[in-house]
């Protein structure tokens, strides 16, 4: 398994977010903040993605959808929770329909707080996710060699 951290592709899913963090994620892809210079492309296909960006809290309906997208991604994969609602449930934690943050459903590697999270923080989060992905690739290659 080669090193995919040089050009990771991202997939973005909005689970009960107010759209603030989603628009900031899309704004990071546009010319002023431009995370495409790190080799990142926004794809719509979970089977071709390496980094999963989740915004918004988890509610009873989209818990299944988030789990399904996570299961479809090939490993090694990294999950980044963007915004306060994805980290802990945010200001809506007391609502009846919200279960909590993303870590109630799938394991999260990087947390980016903020309401709405600014593009500067999102770029920082994705650069750290690249580093995390590289560590996972190295660990997988080592495990494969020792397994032989």
């Amino acid at each position: 398994m080669k090193d995919v951290s040089k050009s990771p592709w991202i997939i973005h899913y909005d689970g009960s977010s107010c759209n603030g963090c989603d628009m900031e994620v899309l704004a990071s892809l546009t010319p002023v903040y431009d995370i495409e210079r790190f080799g990142v492309i926004n794809t719509g296909d979970p089977m071709q993605a390496d980094i999963f960006l989740v915004t918004g809290g988890i509610n009873t309906l989209n818990q299944m959808v988030v789990k399904q997208i996570y299961d479809q991604m090939p490993s090694p994969k990294v999950v980044v929770a963007i915004g306060t609602c994805a980290c802990t449930g945010g200001i809506f934690k007391e609502c009846y329909n919200i279960i909590g943050g993303t870590d109630t459903t799938i394991p999260v590697d990087i947390y980016v707080p903020g309401c709405a999270a600014r593009p500067q923080s999102i770029i920082d989060g994705i650069v750290q996710a690249k580093e995390c992905l590289k560590q996972k690739c190295i660990a997988e290659q080592k495990a494969a060699k020792e397994g032989k």
């Binding site: 909005d14 689970g15 509610n59 959808v65 609502c95 919200i98």
Partner: peptide, 24 residues
């Protein structure tokens, strides 16, 4: 899929604090 149930928060937050919820 995005239903959070904001309007049920009227009994937990008073009318001054509801501005922050309605904005989001």
């Amino acid at each position: 899929f995005v239903h959070r149930g904001l309007e049920s928060l009227t009994d937990k937050k008073d009318f001054n604090e509801l501005v922050y919820i309605i904005e989001r």
